[in-house]
């Protein structure tokens, strides 16, 4: 174990630097939120900062910078399925676009879109 002591010392210095960057990024993201950015812009900046922070934690603290192949494979797999899971809202949205054209005149609460579209569809045919 002690054979790697010097390696570990180098690691420790990295951890401190990464901590400083993470703290700075936290301040940045809060500061940016006080600027009057448009919503898409604000989302883009906030997610960019969050992804950077997340990447730093994963790469340095969780040692993903230098990890075994099987862990990369496993993570790739869960990222793919994570993306599929995130596609759920997209899929819903696609239904929304179509149903809007059918019943846009009613303009009920958006939360009820799915349901109302369904009912309307049944009644309309």
């Amino acid at each position: 174990m002690s054979a790697h002591a010097e390696d570990i010392q180098a690691h420790v210095r990295t951890y401190v630097v990464v901590f400083a960057v993470l703290a700075a990024l936290t301040v940045v993201t809060v500061a940016v939120s006080y600027l009057d950015l448009s919503t898409p812009m604000a989302i883009a900046v906030a997610l960019l900062v969050a992804c950077t922070k997340g990447a730093l934690v994963a790469l340095f603290f969780m040692h993903l910078l230098d990890e075994k192949k099987i862990i990369y494979a496993l993570l790739a797999l869960s990222v793919i399925f994570f993306a599929m899971c995130l596609s759920i809202p997209t899929e819903w949205h696609s239904g929304l676009i179509r149903s809007d054209s059918v019943w846009s005149s009613t303009g009920a609460g958006a939360g009820a879109h799915g349901e109302s579209a369904h009912d309307d569809h049944g009644g309309g045919h």
């Binding site: 993201t29 809060v30 939120s33 919503t39 906030a46 969050a50 922070k53 997340g54 934690v57 603290f61």
Partner: peptide
């Protein structure tokens, strides 16, 4: 590793819930 993951989740929760 588990603890870093919990931290990681919070890093995303914080802007998504509090800032956006």
């Amino acid at each position: 590793l588990y603890w870093h993951f919990v931290d990681l989740v919070w890093i995303f929760l914080f802007p998504v819930l509090y800032l956006l």
